[in-house]
Simulated assay, not measured.
Amino acid sequence: MTANMISMIYAYTAAGVCIIIGAAGLGSAIGWGLICSKTIEGIARQPEMKPVLMTNMFVFAGLMESFPFIILAFAMWFLFANPFVGAMGVAIKAIGG
C-alpha cells in the first residue's frame, strides 16, 4: 500500500465527512424551523396550551440539537481513526499484492 493510496483514502474520507456534517446541519436547521413553527401555530390556535406546548418544544428541540453532535462524533471517528485505511490493507493482502 503506497502513500498515494493512503492519501487518496483520507482525501475521499474528508470529502465524505464534509457532506455528512453539512447534511446534519441542514437537517437540524429544518427540524428547528418545523418545531418552532408548529409550536407557534399551536399557541395561536389554543393560547391556554402555551406551557404544555413550550415544554414539548424544548424537549424535542433538545433531541433535535443532539443529532448534529452525534453525527459530528461519527464524522470525527471517520476522519481521525479512519477504518478504511486498515480495510484497504487487508483487501490488498487478500488479493495477494
Score class of each variant (00 low, 15 high):
1 M>S: 03
1 M>D: 02
2 T>A: 05
4 N>K: 13
5 M>H: 13
7 S>L: 11
8 M>E: 14
9 I>L: 01
10 Y>C: 11
11 A>P: 02
12 Y>W: 14
13 T>C: 05
13 T>H: 04
15 A>P: 01
15 A>S: 06
17 V>W: 02
18 C>A: 15
21 I>Q: 05
21 I>C: 00
22 G>I: 03
22 G>S: 07
22 G>P: 05
22 G>D: 00
23 A>M: 04
24 A>N: 09
24 A>Y: 02
26 L>H: 06
27 G>S: 01
27 G>P: 02
28 S>W: 00
28 S>F: 02
29 A>H: 09
30 I>T: 09
32 W>L: 13
32 W>V: 15
32 W>Q: 15
32 W>M: 15
33 G>M: 13
33 G>L: 08
35 I>P: 02
37 S>G: 12
38 K>A: 08
38 K>M: 01
39 T>C: 01
39 T>G: 06
40 I>T: 10
42 G>F: 00
43 I>W: 00
47 P>Y: 03
48 E>T: 07
49 M>S: 15
49 M>N: 14
50 K>N: 10
51 P>E: 06
51 P>W: 07
52 V>G: 14
55 T>A: 11
57 M>R: 08
57 M>L: 08
59 V>N: 03
59 V>P: 03
59 V>S: 01
60 F>N: 10
60 F>D: 10
62 G>E: 09
65 E>D: 09
66 S>T: 11
66 S>Q: 11
66 S>C: 11
67 F>P: 01
67 F>E: 07
69 F>D: 09
69 F>P: 01
70 I>D: 07
71 I>L: 09
72 L>R: 01
73 A>R: 08
73 A>E: 09
74 F>P: 02
74 F>H: 02
76 M>S: 06
76 M>Y: 06
77 W>Q: 11
81 A>C: 12
81 A>T: 13
82 N>Y: 04
82 N>G: 04
82 N>W: 04
83 P>N: 03
84 F>Y: 06
86 G>D: 10
86 G>E: 06
87 A>S: 09
88 M>T: 10
88 M>A: 15
89 G>A: 12
89 G>T: 11
92 I>G: 12
92 I>A: 13
93 K>G: 11
94 A>M: 15
95 I>F: 13
96 G>E: 07
96 G>L: 00
96 G>C: 00
97 G>H: 08
